[in-house]
Amino acid sequence: MAPSVVLLLLLNGFPLVYAAVQSLRDGNLLQAGPYVGLDNFARAFQDPVFWRAARFTLLFTAVGVFGSWAIGLGIALLLRGSVPGARVFKVLLLLPWVVPVVVSSTSWNWLVATSSSPVPVLASALGFENVLFLADPTMAAITVCVFKVWISFPFMMLMSSAALTGVDSTVYEAARVDGASSIQQFTRITLPLIAPSTYISWILMTIFCVNDFPTIYLLTGGGPVGETTSLVVLAYRVVFQDFQTGYGVAIAFLMTAVLVVASVWLYRSIRRATV
């Protein structure tokens, strides 16, 4: 195992250490720059742009995780029964997740980007005037979140379907004999028994959402007026457009710290659910 471990350390450990060194300096893509200690991290906490991006990242992640989970679990429960063509539906429902995000974002841009796009035209026909899905800051944030749910629910559907197959049907039969309603069966049998898989899917989707660069950048570019700029988009802009490598890497490290804390909390929830 030694050669593989050494290779992994070189491929992952060295870039991580180098990035940590960069976060402590005020450099650019060509020069490391002078040593500034923790000034880049302190600057982030004092930067209103950073907090605005953090707020949108939190919203984007919460909607992406719980919205896609609710829809995915609902579809998994629906298709678990004797639905004609359930396998065909499952394959078709995987398309938003399977199709490359470049294709999906281009399609959504065609649907909502301009006032002559199909969705704004339909909204205007229904009596809603000047619905600018990507030009209005609030509508742009809603559109990006909805788009994330749309491309993510198939993953949650797969995770939920796999967890539901492990639930013994005799448990539901015994619950029905005891007079349990459908809601009671769902809250007291289904959710507790699939809790470990649910927490794992939440951990993975949280990581996917926080680190999701192409979904936001291809759809809105972080605009309008920075309303849909997440932390990963902000870090990209700071490093590759403003050429402030130290500050951009510091933002990335702060993102990583939050992800680690969230993952540890969810992992402990998994352990409690399996006891």
Rank of each mutant, 00 (worst) to 15 (best):
8 L>D: 02
9 L>T: 01
14 F>P: 01
15 P>Q: 05
20 A>P: 04
26 D>N: 13
35 Y>H: 04
38 L>E: 00
39 D>A: 13
47 D>T: 02
51 W>M: 10
53 A>Q: 11
60 F>D: 00
66 F>S: 03
67 G>K: 10
80 R>L: 09
81 G>I: 09
84 P>Q: 08
84 P>F: 10
84 P>G: 03
85 G>Q: 08
95 L>G: 03
98 V>Q: 06
99 V>N: 01
112 V>E: 06
116 S>T: 12
116 S>F: 09
117 S>C: 13
117 S>D: 05
128 F>D: 02
128 F>C: 00
131 V>T: 09
132 L>P: 00
134 L>D: 03
135 A>Y: 10
135 A>D: 11
137 P>M: 11
137 P>K: 04
138 T>D: 12
141 A>V: 05
144 V>G: 04
145 C>R: 03
147 F>P: 01
147 F>I: 04
148 K>E: 08
149 V>Q: 02
155 F>R: 01
155 F>S: 02
157 M>G: 04
172 Y>S: 03
172 Y>E: 05
179 G>F: 15
190 T>G: 09
192 P>F: 10
194 I>Y: 02
198 T>A: 14
198 T>Y: 07
202 W>T: 03
202 W>H: 07
205 M>I: 02
205 M>P: 00
207 I>F: 12
208 F>M: 08
209 C>W: 00
211 N>F: 08
214 P>Y: 06
215 T>C: 10
217 Y>G: 01
221 G>Q: 13
223 G>K: 05
226 G>M: 08
227 E>M: 06
229 T>P: 02
229 T>R: 13
231 L>V: 03
232 V>K: 07
233 V>H: 06
235 A>D: 04
239 V>M: 15
244 Q>P: 04
247 Y>W: 05
263 S>A: 12
264 V>D: 03
265 W>N: 00
269 S>M: 15
273 A>F: 14
